[in-house]
Amino acid sequence: MKGKVVSYLAAKKYGFIQGDDGESYFLHFSELLDKKDEGKLVKGSMVHFDPTPTPKGLAAKAISLPLE
C-alpha cells in the first residue's frame, strides 16, 4: 500500500503514516527495509508498506521509500 508520513519522531524511532485507504498506521524504524532511508522519513514523504493489524491497532510493516 502507498501512504504519506504524517509524523516521525527520530529520537524515539516511531511515527505515523496515513494510508491511501485513509487509515492511520504506526510506523517504527525497525520496519524500514533500508535503514539509510531514515533521514527521508519526514512529514509528507511518500512510502510503500504492508498494512498489518496488531493487537494495538494498525501497523506499517516492510516500509520502503519510492525510487527517486
Rank of each mutant, 00 (worst) to 15 (best):
M1G: 07
M1Y: 05
M1P: 03
M1I: 10
M1Q: 06
K2W: 13
K2A: 10
K2L: 10
K2F: 13
G3F: 00
G3R: 00
G3L: 00
K4C: 13
K4Y: 14
K4A: 07
V5H: 01
V5R: 01
V5G: 01
V6N: 06
V6T: 12
V6L: 13
V6G: 05
V6E: 08
S7V: 15
S7E: 10
Y8N: 03
Y8F: 04
L9S: 15
L9V: 15
L9A: 10
L9W: 15
A10T: 11
A10G: 09
A10F: 13
A10H: 11
A11V: 10
A11M: 09
A11L: 10
A11Q: 11
A11Y: 11
K12R: 11
K13E: 04
K13D: 03
Y14L: 05
Y14R: 05
Y14F: 11
Y14K: 04
G15M: 02
G15L: 03
F16N: 04
F16Y: 08
F16H: 04
F16C: 07
F16S: 04
I17G: 00
I17M: 02
I17L: 05
Q18I: 14
Q18A: 11
Q18Y: 11
Q18L: 15
Q18W: 11
Q18H: 11
Q18R: 14
Q18C: 13
G19P: 01
G19C: 03
D20S: 10
D20Q: 10
D20P: 06
D20G: 06
D20I: 10
D20L: 09
D21R: 03
D21M: 03
D21K: 03
G22E: 04
G22C: 08
G22Y: 04
G22A: 05
E23P: 02
E23V: 10
E23Q: 14
E23S: 09
E23K: 15
E23I: 11
S24C: 15
S24P: 06
S24H: 12
S24E: 09
Y25T: 00
Y25W: 02
Y25N: 01
Y25Q: 00
F26K: 03
F26C: 04
F26H: 04
F26Q: 03
F26W: 08
L27Y: 09
L27A: 05
H28A: 12
H28V: 06
H28M: 07
H28T: 07
H28Y: 07
H28L: 06
H28N: 06
F29V: 12
S30Q: 08
S30L: 09
S30E: 09
S30K: 11
S30G: 08
E31H: 07
E31I: 03
E31D: 10
L32V: 04
L32Y: 02
L32S: 01
L32E: 00
L32G: 01
L32W: 02
L33F: 05
L33V: 12
L33R: 09
L33C: 10
L33Y: 05
D34K: 06
K35L: 08
K35T: 08
K35N: 06
K36W: 09
K36P: 04
K36Q: 11
K36A: 13
K36I: 07
D37R: 05
D37A: 09
E38A: 10
E38G: 06
E38H: 07
G39Y: 14
G39R: 13
G39P: 14
L41F: 03
L41Y: 02
L41K: 00
V42N: 08
V42P: 02
V42A: 09
K43D: 05
K43Y: 13
K43C: 10
G44L: 03
G44H: 05
G44I: 02
G44Y: 04
G44K: 03
S45G: 08
S45H: 10
S45K: 14
S45C: 15
S45T: 15
M46G: 06
M46D: 08
M46A: 11
M46Y: 12
M46T: 14
M46L: 14
M46R: 15
M46E: 12
V47Q: 00
V47N: 01
V47F: 01
V47D: 01
H48C: 14
H48L: 15
F49C: 02
F49T: 00
D50P: 01
D50I: 15
P51C: 05
P51H: 04
T52Y: 15
T52W: 15
T52P: 02
T52L: 13
P53L: 13
P53F: 13
P53T: 13
P53M: 15
P53K: 14
P53W: 15
T54G: 10
T54H: 08
T54R: 06
T54I: 04
T54D: 05
T54L: 06
T54F: 05
T54M: 07
P55R: 10
P55F: 09
P55I: 10
P55A: 11
P55G: 08
K56R: 13
K56D: 07
K56A: 09
K56P: 03
G57S: 03
G57H: 03
L58V: 05
L58M: 11
A59E: 07
A59S: 09
A59R: 15
A60C: 03
A60G: 04
A60V: 02
A60P: 02
K61C: 10
K61H: 10
K61Q: 07
K61P: 01
K61R: 12
A62S: 14
A62G: 11
A62D: 08
I63M: 03
I63E: 01
I63T: 03
I63H: 01
I63L: 04
I63D: 02
I63F: 00
I63Y: 00
I63A: 05
S64M: 11
S64T: 13
S64E: 06
L65M: 11
L65T: 07
L65H: 04
L65E: 03
P66Y: 15
P66D: 15
P66H: 15
P66E: 14
L67H: 12
L67R: 13
L67D: 13
L67S: 13
E68I: 12
E68P: 12
E68V: 12
E68Q: 12
